[in-house]
C-alpha cells in the first residue's frame, strides 16, 4: 500500500492510561492531536502518515513523466489535474502528520536522505502511454482498497484527510480505466501497449499491499489502534477479485497462468508476486529508485532560494507594518 511494512512501536506507559486510550478507540471515539496518546501510537502514525504522504509526492513523478507527451489536449488536462491531486493529497497528509509534532520540512528531509520510505510501486517506470491508464486503474485501484477503510481510522486528522482524499480520488481510477479502455479497443499497436502495461504493472500492484502480515505483531498492534483496518492479504484478495472481471472486459490477459476462480472459496486463486524483487525495490534497487529520489532532491535544492526569498519578503513587509504602527 502507500504505507508498506510500517513498524509499530512497543508501548511502555502507564497501563491504566493505555487501557483508557484503547477503550476510546474500541468505542470509535476519534483521537485528536491534543489528546493523550501513547508515544508508540504517535511514532507509528508519524511513520505511516509520512510514508503515505511521501508516496503521493513521489507518485507524481511516474505519471508526470507523460504530461508533456499526452496525446490529446483533453488527456493532458485530465492527467495534469490528476497528478496535481496527488500533490494535494500529499499536502493534506503532511498537514495531518504535522499535528503530531513533526514539521513538513523534517519529514521531507527524511524522505530525501532515505530515512523514510515511499511505496515500492513508484519505483517502476512508465514506458508507454497505456501505463498512464494502468497506473490509474491498477495502482489507484489498489490504493483505494486501503484508503476507503482508512477513512475510519482512529486518528482524527488522518481520518479527515482520508475522507477528503477518497472523495477526490474517485475520478482517478475511472480516468485510468477509461484511458486504457481506449487503448484496448484501439489499433493493434495500442492493444499491444495496453497488454504491455498490464504485464508490467500487475505484480507490482499486488506488491503494493505488502507481504502477508497475518502473523505480524506490528500489524496486530496497528489493527488494535485502528490505524490499519484490514490485513494485507484481505485487501490483496479483494483487489484481485475486483480487477479480474475488469481486465476480462478489456480483453487483456492478466500475466498469471494460475489465476482462476475458486468456487469453494468464492474468490480468485492467484500467484504471489516475487517477494525478493519487492525487497530489492524497498532496499533501493528498483528500476527507478535512484532517479526518483534524485528528482525530489533536485526540486527541493533548486527551490530553496525561492522558499527563502518569499519568506524574506514576507518578514520584511511584516516588520515594515509593525514599524508603521
Amino acid at each position: 500500500m502507500y504505507a508498506q511494512m510500517v513498524k509499530s512501536e512497543a508501548s511502555n506507559e502507564d497501563p491504566e492510561k493505555l487501557a483508557e486510550f484503547q477503550a476510546r478507540i474500541d468505542a470509535d471515539i476519534k483521537i485528536e492531536p491534543k489528546d493523550w496518546m501513547p508515544q508508540a501510537y504517535r511514532k507509528t502514525l508519524i511513520r505511516q502518515i509520512g510514508q503515505h504522504a511521501h508516496s503521493e509526492i513521489v507518485g507524481q513523478l511516474p505519471e508526470g513523466n507523460w504530461i508533456t507527451r499526452a496525446p490529446t489536449l483533453e488527456r493532458k488536462a485530465i492527467l495534469l489535474a490528476k497528478v496535481q491531486d496527488e500533490a494535494g493529497h500529499g499536502l493534506y497528509l503532511y498537514c495531518a502528520a504535522e499535528t503530531l509534532g513533526v514539521s513538513r520540512d523534517e519529514l521531507t528531509e527524511m524522505l530525501l536522505d532515505g530515512r523514510m520510505k515511499y511505496s515500492s510501486i513508484f519505483n517502476y517506470p512508465t514506458l508507454n502511454w497505456a501505463d498512464i491508464g494502468a497506473v490509474g486503474w491498477l495502482v489507484d485501484g489498489a490504493a483505494i482498497m486501503n484508503q476507503v477503510p482508512l477513512q475510519r481510522t482512529s486518528f482524527g486528522p488522518y481520518s479527515r484527510a482520508m475522507i477528503r482524499i477518497c472523495k477526490e480520488e474517485s475520478f482517478h481510477q475511472r480516468q485510468g480505466y477509461d484511458a486504457i479502455r481506449k487503448m484496448a479497443e484501439g489499433t493493434p499497436e495500442q492493444r499491444k501497449m495496453a497488454q504491455d502495461a498490464m504485464n508490467r504493472f500487475w505484480y507490482p500492484s499486488l506488491m503494493m499491499f505488502g507481504p502477508s502480515d497475518k502473523d505480524s505483531v506490528h500489524s496486530a498492534q496497528s489493527m488494535a489502534w485502528k490505524i490499519k483496518i484490514n490485513t494485507n492479504d484481505e485487501l490483496r484478495q479483494k483487489f484481485v477479485d475486483q480487477t479480474v472481471p475488469q481486465a476480462e472486459y478489456l480483453g487483456l490477459t492478466i500475466p498469471d497462468p494460475d489465476l482462476k476462480w475458486n468456487e469453494e472459496r468464492g474468490h480468485y486463486d492467484f500467484s504471489e508476486p516475487d517477494w525478493s524483487e519487492f525487497f530489492d525495490v524497498i532496499k533501493g534497487n528498483g528500476p527507478c529508485n535512484v532517479d526518483r529520489l534524485a528528482a525530489r532532491n533536485k526540486a527541493w535544492d533548486d527551490g530553496k532560494w525561492v522558499r527563502d526569498g518569499l519568506l524574506a519578503h514576507a518578514r520584511k513587509k511584516q516588520s515594515g507594518n509593525l514599524a508603521a504602527e
Binding site: 507524481q60 504530461i67 508533456t68 496535481q84 500533490a87 528528482a295 526540486a299 533548486d302 527551490g303 525561492v306
Partner: peptide, 13 residues
C-alpha cells in the same frame, strides 16, 4: 506543465 512534480514547494506545484 513541465513543472508538475518539480516545483520548490507543494503549494506552488
Amino acid at each position: 506543465s513541465e513543472w508538475c512534480g518539480h516545483a520548490p514547494v507543494l503549494e506552488e506545484d
